[in-house]
Amino acid sequence: MFFVPRILRLFVVFTLAAALLPSAQAEVKVLASIKPLQLIAAAVQNGVGQPDVLLPPGASPHHYALRPSDVRKVAEADLLYWIGPDMEAFMAKPLQARGKPTVAVQNLPGLALRRFAEDAHSHEEDSDDHDHDHRPGSLDAHLWLASVNARVIAQRMATDLANADPANAARYQANAAAFSQRLDALDARIKARVAGVQGKPYFVFHEAFDYFEAAYGLHHAGVFAVAAEVQPGAQHVAAMRARLQEAGKTCVFSEPPVRPRLAETLTAGLPVKLAELDALGSFKNAPADGYETLLNNLADNLAGCLEAL
């Protein structure tokens, strides 16, 4: 009988002591709409937490349909980052019911933004085939493909995380600074990687790479902007093939996971290579250096195809 009261007394003492200790800060739940934003957040949260992403690999940010589980993620996230209505228009309505901090990164001060310009010589497209708004003067929302913009986004994330989790504020700021330094090295590496293919003509199926091209001295020769489910008419195909014949040896880049059905027909019998450029990042996880991998892969795939001609 002696041991029971003693054990109870010890239990009460330890329980009270634990209650008096400061509770550990719960991990801040960060949700990004698309993979590139998740990769930037992963660099900032490195060693503290792991951000989540809304869209699964291969999903289009232009016309995604939220599932019930996605709606719960949106409601529960402590911090949510999306590009904005010029990219993920489907998110505008669900976000109206959200009471926690939400950042449309396209509105951040300090970004180097681009707008689509009218260039009749470089486009072969049907207006009905566009899957989103590329009208002249509209915002080019693929802004994450410029490392200068990734720095701005990372710094905003570090500030938000420091406010939400003051105990780790110094770590978030240090991670953002380290990320910026790594991007300096990345920029130098990519400029050297693509230096030998600058001026070589190539074509894309989606005008998504202007930020990347502007940063590293590249420029596509044309955009075959056709939706994957639409088969253009014979006159349209003939016009696009004429552009490729004029270019000679060249590359035509599509984006994973689906290559447009038109690709094989368009390039049959021509000295043209088909390849992929992944603007969104098809990673199963979100490593701290994932954003650098995303841009490195773009440079390597683009230069590799053009060098092999």
Rank of each mutant, 00 (worst) to 15 (best):
F209G: 02
D278H: 12
E76Y: 05
E276Q: 14
P136I: 13
Y216N: 08
T267W: 12
V103S: 09
P36T: 07
T250L: 02
H142F: 04
R115H: 07
H63R: 06
L95C: 12
A176F: 12
G47H: 09
F2I: 14
K200H: 08
K35E: 00
Q50G: 07
S127I: 10
G47K: 13
L280F: 04
I7K: 12
V30T: 12
V30Y: 06
A24W: 08
L80D: 04
F212R: 10
G196D: 13
I7Y: 12
L298K: 10
P136R: 13
D133G: 01
A227S: 15
L244N: 06
T159M: 04
L108K: 08
P61M: 02
S147Y: 00
D278C: 11
F116N: 03
A19N: 03
A24E: 12
A247I: 11
L39Q: 03
A275Y: 01
L10Y: 06
A26L: 04
S60W: 03
N149G: 01
A17G: 06
F11S: 15
L108E: 00
L266N: 07
P101A: 12
V237Y: 05
L80G: 06
G49T: 15
A303G: 05
M240E: 06
A162R: 11
Q45V: 09
R189E: 09
V71L: 11
F90E: 02
L55F: 00
T159Y: 04
A24M: 06
A169Q: 07
D126A: 14
I153G: 02
G304R: 11
S180K: 11
Q235W: 04
L309A: 02
A117D: 10
V226P: 00
A150R: 14
L8H: 08
G269K: 06
V194W: 03
L143I: 12
I7F: 15
S127K: 15
Q231E: 09
H62R: 06
A158K: 11
A221M: 02
A42M: 09
F283S: 15
E118T: 09
N46H: 15
V194E: 07
M157E: 08
A164M: 10
P61G: 01
A192K: 14
A215E: 11
V230I: 12
H236D: 02
T265L: 11
L266P: 04
G137P: 05
A174V: 13
S282M: 14
H121C: 01
V74M: 12
L143T: 02
A214K: 10
L309Y: 01
A59S: 14
A24F: 06
P260W: 05
Q155P: 00
S147P: 03
